[in-house]
Amino acid sequence: MDVTAPAHRLSAAVSAAGRLLPARAALRLRADAGGLTVAGSDPDLTVRFGCPATTHTDGSVAVPAAPLAETLKMLDTDVVRLVVEGTRLALRLDNARFALPLLSAGSAPPDAEPPRVSEVDGTTFASALRIVAGTAAKDDPLPLFTGVRLQAGEHLTLTASDRYRMAVARLPLRSPGALDVLVPAALLTEAARQAKGVVGLHAGPGRFGLSWQGGLIGTAVLDAGFLSPDAIPTRSVDTTVTLNADALAAAVRRVGVYAEDRRVLTLEVGDTQVRLASARQDTGEAEETLKADVSGGRTSPSFQARYLLDALHAFAGERVELSIQPGMRACVLRAAQPGEVELTYYLMPMLAR
Rank of each mutant, 00 (worst) to 15 (best):
T299H: 03
E321H: 04
R235M: 06
D310Y: 08
D121W: 04
A152R: 02
E285L: 11
F145W: 10
G317S: 10
S323H: 08
I217L: 14
T46Y: 04
V3T: 05
D246C: 11
M350Y: 08
A13V: 15
A305R: 07
A314N: 04
P205C: 14
L68T: 02
L102R: 06
G206M: 09
S127W: 02
S107F: 13
T289M: 12
R170E: 08
R280A: 12
A152I: 02
A53V: 01
A23D: 15
Y258A: 13
D78P: 03
L179Y: 08
C51T: 13
A314G: 08
G256K: 15
N95P: 02
L150D: 03
G134A: 13
S236H: 15
A335V: 09
P67V: 13
M350N: 07
Y307K: 05
L91W: 01
M1I: 04
G147N: 09
L36M: 13
L158D: 01
S104Q: 13
D32P: 14
A220Q: 07
S323N: 09
S175Y: 02
T135E: 13
V252I: 15
R253N: 09
L82N: 00
S161G: 08
T299I: 07
S41E: 11
R254Q: 15
P109S: 15
T283L: 15
A133V: 05
L82P: 00
Y164G: 06
T240Q: 12
L103A: 06
F315Q: 05
T159V: 15
P184N: 09
L142H: 12
A185K: 08
G327S: 11
P141C: 06
L82A: 00
S323P: 01
R19V: 01
L322N: 06
S15P: 00
V257L: 15
V274F: 07
V255L: 09
R298P: 01
A16S: 15
P205H: 12
T266S: 13
L248I: 07
L100P: 03
G50N: 05
D111H: 03
A286D: 11
A33G: 14
Q194D: 03
L20R: 05
L210D: 15
A316F: 05
S15T: 10
S236T: 11
A191G: 10
A23L: 10
R306I: 02
A31C: 08
I232A: 07
V132T: 02
A13D: 03
G270A: 14
A26S: 15
P43M: 12
R30K: 14
T4W: 00
D223C: 06
V274L: 10
S302V: 03
G218D: 13
Q325F: 15
D121M: 08
A352N: 13
A112Y: 13
Q194Y: 09
S175D: 11
M1G: 04
L150Q: 03
L156N: 07
V83K: 01
L72I: 07
E285G: 05
T55A: 04
L100N: 07
A128Q: 03
I217Q: 03
I324P: 00
R334G: 03
V294R: 10
L36Q: 01
S300M: 09
A90H: 00
V294D: 02
S211K: 03
H202C: 10
V84A: 06
A316K: 14
L142V: 09
D162Q: 11
S60T: 10
K73F: 10
A65Y: 00
